[in-house]
């Protein structure tokens, strides 16, 4: 996990620990916003007669990441209304997350959303480690 963090964050580890509470808080607020934003589509689909979902399964490449990272991303994806993690599969040298999405208009948007969530997660919870 640490090698991966270094590449992405590139800050000294002590600074990572110092700013962790703030970054975790920002992540929590952003995620709460995501939940609210994506709950609208589910609400409308569940409460109106027509089926409005455009279900798809996408394969999100994660690269070489650790178990904790995959776990955290899968949990966030599943807690977001309309998306569900289906499992982890090998992908080249690393792993990929299978994500079931119900309200993304196309696969590219779904992939971009999960990739953005992954970036936010890394920024919010890792301590980096330049040493």
């Amino acid at each position: 996990m640490s090698a991966h963090d270094e590449v992405r964050t590139g800050r000294p580890r002590w600074l990572g620990y110092l700013t962790l509470p703030w970054r975790a808080g920002v992540l929590a607020v952003w995620f709460a916003g995501q939940v609210l934003a994506s709950s609208g589509a589910v609400l409308v689909d569940a409460l109106t007669p027509r089926h409005r979902s455009t279900p798809r399964v996408v394969r999100v490449p994660l690269g070489e990441v650790g178990d904790r990272h995959v776990f955290a991303l899968a949990v966030l994806v599943t807690l977001t209304p309309g998306t569900l993690a289906l499992g982890v599969v090998p992908d080249g040298d690393g792993r990929a997350l299978l994500v079931h999405s119900m309200y993304h208009p196309d696969a590219a948007t779904a992939l971009a959303d999960v990739a953005r969530m992954d970036r936010r997660l890394v920024r919010g919870l890792t301590t980096g480690g330049g040493a």
Binding site: V35, V42, S53, P55, T78, L79, L84, H100, M102
Partner: peptide, 17 residues
Amino acid sequence: FRDPYARISSVATAAGV
């Protein structure tokens, strides 16, 4: 919802949020 996946998605979110 029409398949297990949509139903699980619905319940997992609600049980959390």
